[in-house]
Write a protein that binds this DNA or RNA. Structure first.
Lengths: 115, 115
DNA sequence: ATGTTATGTGACTAAATAGTAACATGTTTT
DNA sequence: AAAACATGTTACTATTTAGTCACATAACAT
């Protein structure tokens, strides 16, 4: 279960790949167009990132003639949220309480333990 | 902006670190208790993971005597959702449409291009 | 004081990852 | 057919990351 999401987490861990996803937000782009947006990277570095994104299901590919159109697929992002982050969302309020508790205990520690 | 979230994405990319966060959900644990939960890893491997989680702000530390209590802090997770995933959430429906479009175009391609 | 327990550090190894360069394939255009 | 173009592949290098081992520090109990 978490295994399927692992590839998504790993794919999202790289800033270049997140930038690629941002570029695909408005609509699909060819591999060449994407490479043009990354002057600092070699064409193949971009292609490898695209491969990782495609393996994670974040990018879908449609080939048309000699061009390859890369589509953003947000479904895996949604799954990461629903299956993994959602359960943490339930803790958002209690986490703030814990943080408050954490700080208060430290203050208390300072009172007793001045040094 | 994205820079601050980068450490969080990177920290979440590792399955062991996600497991540590899961273990901290019910409440804080000492470093030793966490190490006990990872029989397959050395104590120090766990400590390094804790260090990365702490650097990302996902784990807060309170020292008490010779023990160190590790607290889950879900705020960075929330920030990742709000600042990064949220904007993608707006595309969830249109992404499905795009996927539908993607499939239909491929079917159409097969019709014309039977090969 | 001294032994035990809990955590922190320094130096190193092994594997995964990001990257480049050079070459290969396949498609349109002429 | 041949030039031009877009993408794919093979082989290699460098950097980062995950990991271990051995040692150091710090706190509590006797």
């Amino acid at each position: 279960m978490d295994d399927a999401l692992d590839a998504v987490f790993k794919a999202l861990a790289d800033p270049t790949r997140r930038r690629i996803l941002d570029l695909l937000k408005p609509g699909p782009k060819t591999t060449g167009q994407l490479c043009g947006a990354f002057a600092e990277l070699s064409r193949f570095a971009v292609m490898k990132h695209l491969g990782i994104l495609a393996d994670a299901g974040l990018v879908l590919v449609r080939r048309e003639g000699r061009q390859r159109f890369n589509y953003l697929n947000t479904v895996p992002i949604r799954q990461v949220y629903e299956r993994w982050m959602g359960p943490y969302a339930e803790l958002w309020s209690s986490s703030l309480l814990r943080l408050k508790d954490h700080v208060e205990r430290d203050l208390h520690r300072d009172d007793n333990d001045g040094k």
